[in-house]
């Protein structure tokens, strides 16, 4: 028996999900961060973040079409993490590293938190 493994299938699917997001197709939730709004797919959010997984597996909350995050969350940090969820690329700017890491802690994205820790350690003189 043989099996064909398409090695770039996961990234091709993610690319298409990101195109759907950028065109606002089948996005089903608005994330409010301070006054900024981000449209996204619940399934992608919950696949990447422990916080969103908890929210959307709760039968009382899974049908919400808008979620407000803690006002302490920095929209710029959230935007970078949302971009990461849809592209697998995490932009770590030194000026934003603390807000990215704190947002990742809040969103329960443990692997990203570890990566931020390593980035901070490696840039420490």
């Amino acid at each position: 028996d043989s099996c064909i493994q398409f090695t770039r299938h996961a990234s091709d699917v993610l690319l298409n999900l990101n195109r759907l997001r950028s065109r606002d197709i089948l996005t089903d939730v608005t994330i409010l961060v301070n006054r900024q709004q981000f449209r996204a797919h619940k399934t992608v959010l919950m696949a990447c973040s422990g916080l969103f997984y908890t929210i959307f597996t709760d039968s009382h909350k899974c049908n919400l079409n808008a979620i407000s995050l803690d006002p302490k969350v920095d929209p710029e940090g959230f935007a970078i993490l949302l971009e990461f969820m849809y592209t697998s690329r995490l932009t770590l700017k030194e000026s934003l590293i603390m807000s990215i890491m704190n947002t990742a802690i809040y969103l329960q994205m443990d692997h990203v938190v570890d990566t931020c820790h390593r980035f901070i350690k490696s840039s420490d003189p």
């Binding site: 028996d1 043989s2 099996c3 064909i4 493994q5 398409f6 090695t7 770039r8 299938h9 091709d12 699917v13 690319l15 298409n16 195109r19 759907l20 950028s22 065109r23």
Partner: peptide
């Protein structure tokens, strides 16, 4: 998949949704 001959296909796996129609 143990014992199955796995062939790697490195080309695109699905159509690409355009940025805009």
């Amino acid at each position: 998949y143990e014992g199955v001959n796995t062939i790697k296909e490195r080309g695109r796996s699905i159509h690409e949704i355009p940025r805009q129609d």
